[in-house]
Write a protein that binds this DNA or RNA. Structure first.
Lengths: 113, 113
DNA sequence: TTGGATGCATTGGTTTCTTATGTATCTTTG
DNA sequence: CAAAGATACATAAGAAACCAATGCATCCAA
């Protein structure tokens, strides 16, 4: 099962940034795999979506990169900048608020809970 | 305060359909106002987003319409078709599942809860 | 009588994502 | 050892969903 792409829309940046908060540094491919395993294949980040997003976050100054070589293969690690860490907290808490609003709007909690 | 539009993306249809589940019939403008008041102005549905969405849902056969006149002013009521009701349940429960995934991914619940 | 609210709708542009493609290396398997 | 699949980066074309702006029209209150 995979969530409809419409549902997942708008959450990619937040997910990536939160992962980087917990893991200090990660590379693109690793992120796609981590999300897949953490969500039991329900969210699959495509590379066509991820790489432009990473580049955009870097251009915004929220991520920094460092390139490593594994044999002859390039691996580009991303880390949160100080600004990125701040923005991540803001984004995550905004998302938390939004989720509560959705739970209320969609009546997802039994009233007796 | 208003949620960033990026965050709200992809939830419009679900919200509209759920509202129609609870209210039998509603018209466009009413929907925008209801969402505003239910969310304390945090979600503001623009008309440029809403009307095309309503038309799309109608074209999909999920909504039916009936036009009424208030004085000389047209008011177009939307209701869920039987198919629409089924789809709404599916959408809402998919959204519930997705929200749980996001809560897990973003670590939004204290582990001792 | 003018501004604001009500109520419909479309158009042009942007953001965000998908699908497809490209290049290259490494590993596993028949 | 050849081929397929995994690893790893990236871009380009197009679709989907949305926003901002605008337009038309009615109603009401100041």
């Amino acid at each position: 099962m995979v969530y409809s792409s419409e549902l997942v829309k708008g959450t990619l940046k937040t997910i990536v940034m939160k992962l980087l908060t917990d893991n200090k540094k990660m590379y693109g491919y690793e992120i796609t795999q981590r999300v897949k395993e953490l969500t039991a294949d329900k969210i699959q980040i495509t590379e066509g979506a991820l790489y432009p997003t990473l580049h955009a976050l870097e251009a915004e100054g929220l991520l920094t990169t460092q390139t490593e070589y594994i044999g002859k293969r390039v691996r580009k690690y991303y880390s949160l900048s100080p600004t990125g860490k701040t923005r991540t907290k803001e984004r995550v808490s905004e998302m938390a608020d939004f989720i509560n609003t959705m739970i209320f709007l969609l009546d997802l909690k039994p009233k007796t809970a």
